[in-house]
Nucleic acid binder design. Structure first.
Lengths: 114, 114
DNA sequence: CTCATCTACAACCATTTGGTTGTAGATTAG
DNA sequence: CTAATCTACAACCAAATGGTTGTAGATGAG
């Protein structure tokens, strides 16, 4: 029923991408060192295609980028996006602590287009 | 195919709960002031039952709790859980900055069990 | 050149998600 | 008591998720 262009807001995509243990593990691994897709696939009890899909979800959320290097496609993390997610949650906490009445700021940051 | 008890790990539930704009809006509102379910339902272009389901998702993630007050069910935020999510993302950022080789800590925190 | 490897992508399937309507139980108002 | 309100929950449905297998195109190794 969602007729949206693709998957909703940026926050939608980021949190959805984080809502899976395999994807969080992929992030944690490529933070330390970029890895090829098939190297990642060997780590998990699922097919290469499944891991490709997980990487694609992370890519849609801009949490990782791929860079072709020979015949390999190296996956690496883009931490600035992860930082945006952290700041969004931080904003909710601020909202709590300060009981601020200007909720519009955090909600505005939570829209498509940021 | 998931024969799991219910929805995976705590982090799964928290991030999944946050991956929807309506649910994030509900959190932002009940942070400021607890609201009854039907009061929340009037805010969104969907049925009461739909909002009930969103609240249930937030409840499964322990991001909100309900407290009966007369015939109303007041929804309020539990910020300690939101804080856990923030700390989890913070941990990823630390992992990035310090390139620490003890990834086990953050992964351990990411398991079912607390 | 030939073959193995890495990747992409389509088709398919079961389950979950996010919405609906409808029914029914508590609780308060008058 | 009766009626209106708030909530819960079941049944249903379309679409998205998360997995599979299979096919095919690039690229590197020998």
């Amino acid at each position: 029923m969602v007729v949206d262009e693709l998957g909703g807001t940026e926050a939608d995509r980021i949190f959805h991408a984080l809502a899976d243990a395999t994807r969080r593990d992929i992030i944690a691994r490529v933070i330390r060192q970029e890895q090829s897709v098939s190297a990642l696939a060997r780590l998990y009890p699922m097919s290469l295609a499944a891991v490709q899909k997980h990487v694609a979800v992370l890519e849609r959320a801009a949490l990782v980028t791929k860079e072709r290097h020979g015949r390999e496609q190296r996956v690496r993390a883009d931490l600035t996006v992860l930082r945006r997610a952290t700041r969004l949650l931080d904003a909710y906490e601020q909202l709590w602590r300060h009981r601020t009445h200007s909720i519009e700021q955090i909600l505005a940051e939570d829209q498509e287009g940021h």
